[in-house]
Amino acid sequence: MMRHLTLTIMLIVGALSAVFSGCQSEPPRFPHMAHLAAKCGGPGEHDCLTCSSCHGRMKESDINTPPWVSNCSQCHSNGVQLMNRSRKFARAKSERLDRILFPHDRHLIQKKIHGQCVVCHGGVVDPKATSVRSPPMSVCLDCHQQDFERGYCTPCHIRQELSRLVPQTFLRHDAAWLERHGIAAARQSPICGACHSATWCSDCHDQRRGLPIEQRHPDSIEREFKHVGDFLVRHPIEARSRPATCLRCHTSDSCDSCHINRGVSSLRLGAPNPHPPGWMSRDSGSPDFHGRVARRDPLSCMACHDHGPATNCIQCHRVGGTGGNPHPSGWRSSRSTHDAMCRYCHAN
């Protein structure tokens, strides 16, 4: 244990050293306010600037077209340097915004916008704003909500890039997204389909596809796979920690199939009995009595014994059997006793 601990600490220290030695401060943002609010037009003062003084090309293009160096060079001798610094900041903040298809000319004539750039780009004059250049997508959805909800993304996004974009506002793929994406998919699956193929779902959820996704992509370190490391050893702990979590993706057959693939299934002739002595005794007070475990953790039983009524449970737990009533307090069902499952025990 000490050897692993030492190795881990050394790696952490080494990584931190490398990281913080390479860290630099964030590049400065372009001072929009200073340019727009400066004194102008008077004797000895420069011409008054508006947004379109530098961003005039926006009206001609469907994509983001930042100013050219010549815009800076008209007043600043070091225009190239200033432009590069400004672009550095833009890249650090968000490079993807360059790839939004947005016809400014068609939007500026809208009544809501009325030709005002700051309606959407108010962040450029707010020094505290974190989103500087473009508004959040929620602003777009003021008018395009219907397009969004039917997964019609390509008017603004480039189709081939959708799978690499991460939503920042609605459907925000935030810290808890991996856990919650199923909740979102339950109500907005058409939107999911705009970026992701159904095969994308099956890569992780379809347990019958052979190699797990983690084994297929060992180099995708940034992706958050669920079963990394030696999950095989840890999976009983994980399963007991959150008993139903496995059922989000796995069914009992996938448990057993994996056990068979790994060679630890009871399918094999002469397979070992994993249960401790006393498992089938009549002493219900014994800590190893199977009834206690079956009540508190039936999913563990399910991994091997979920074969419908045709299992050994019913040998004892049927009406008139020696095992008694298996139904716990509070158990109820609206099914009739003619249901196939019920008839195994309630034949009459």
Binding site: L247, A294, G308
Partner: peptide, 27 residues
């Protein structure tokens, strides 16, 4: 990003009603 959540699950109710184990527990 800050996310908080509360969850309650009855595992056996997520199992198939044709699973014999679904009648054993409601924990």
């Amino acid at each position: 990003d800050i996310a908080t959540e509360y969850r309650r699950i009855v595992p056996t109710l997520l199992m198939s009603r044709q699973s014999v184990l679904s009648v054993f527990a409601v924990d």
